[in-house]
């Protein structure tokens, strides 16, 4: 799948060249940590025995992974709307490599975003658990989750008719992802109806696992379940992207 590498490489070249996109993404996430995190920290000293910054960081990492994925989906959408996809389709390369090229570049951007966030969060006072294996496991989980977000973004990009339509659809995922999850508050304080919604959100499981693995919080959901949900989410979204992409190029 050399073509996958060529397309990934091309997307990363374009990404590193678009300074506005880079700055915007980085700033958006940093503002979350600096403004929201620091502000709330004044009010809430700790949650579940951890400082608030460590508590909200996993959620903000997930959010910035979504931001990265949205940017990656935009590239596929842009190439589709401009017709650049036709250049790939007329070339003797596997159709799947076109989607994989976009998926790998999208996941790469999501991971870069997540990593920036982690570093900023630690600089702002989040405290990691002592076990480096836990950090690695968390990064791996975030990477799998980023693949899922990328699939979601690419699936939407494969069917959107315009850039505005794409952003509209993505926005639908964006807010509930953060607020209908345990990103900002513990599950224990939620009323039953909200708990039901929050438990349907795969982000909840990612956040719970990352908190436990990287920041040493007690798990509130069984760890194997969390890992399974994250993997299922990634597989499901990838499948969806594949399906919608196939449909879009055969039209």
């Amino acid at each position: 799948m050399y073509a996958t590498f060529v397309i990934w490489n091309k997307h990363m070249t374009k990404f590193l060249r678009s300074t506005e996109e880079l700055l915007g993404l980085a700033l958006q996430s940093v503002l979350w940590v600096v403004l929201f995190g620091v502000g709330m920290r004044g009010m809430i000293a700790e949650v579940d025995g951890r400082d608030y910054m460590s508590y909200i960081l996993p959620g903000i990492i997930a959010l910035s992974a979504l931001g990265g994925a949205v940017g990656g989906g935009m590239v596929l959408l842009d190439e589709r709307l401009r017709g650049i996809l036709k250049e790939y389709l007329a070339a003797p390369i596997p159709r799947l490599s076109i989607l994989l090229g976009s998926a790998t570049s999208t996941a790469t951007k999501a991971l870069i975003q997540a990593t920036i966030m982690l570093v900023v969060g630690i600089l702002m006072g989040a405290r990691l658990a002592p076990n480096p294996l836990g950090w690695l496991a968390s990064l791996l989980l975030i990477a799998i989750f980023a693949v899922g977000f990328s699939g979601l973004a690419l699936a939407v990009a494969a069917v959107s008719r315009s850039i505005a339509g794409y952003h509209g659809m993505i926005f639908l995922f964006n807010l509930p992802l953060l607020f209908a999850s345990n990103a900002l508050y513990p599950l224990a304080v939620l009323p039953g109806w909200m708990l039901a919604i929050v438990l349907l959100n795969p982000t909840t499981y990612l956040i719970d696992a990352v908190r436990a693995l990287a920041f040493g919080t007690e798990v509130t959901l069984p760890l194997p379940l969390s890992v399974a949900v994250v993997c299922l989410f990634a597989a499901g979204c990838t499948w969806l992207a594949l399906r919608l992409f196939r449909r879009s190029i055969s039209a």
């Binding site: 397309i7 091309k10 070249t13 374009k14 036709k86 250049e87």
Partner: peptide, 25 residues
């Protein structure tokens, strides 16, 4: 092939457009 609409990445240089095309093949 050349297509009816202009199908080019505005953020790449002409050299990159040709080079990437060659690499795809």
């Amino acid at each position: 092939v050349t297509f009816q609409d202009i199908v080019l990445d505005p953020d790449l240089t002409g050299r990159e457009v040709l080079d990437i095309h060659g690499r795809l093949y």
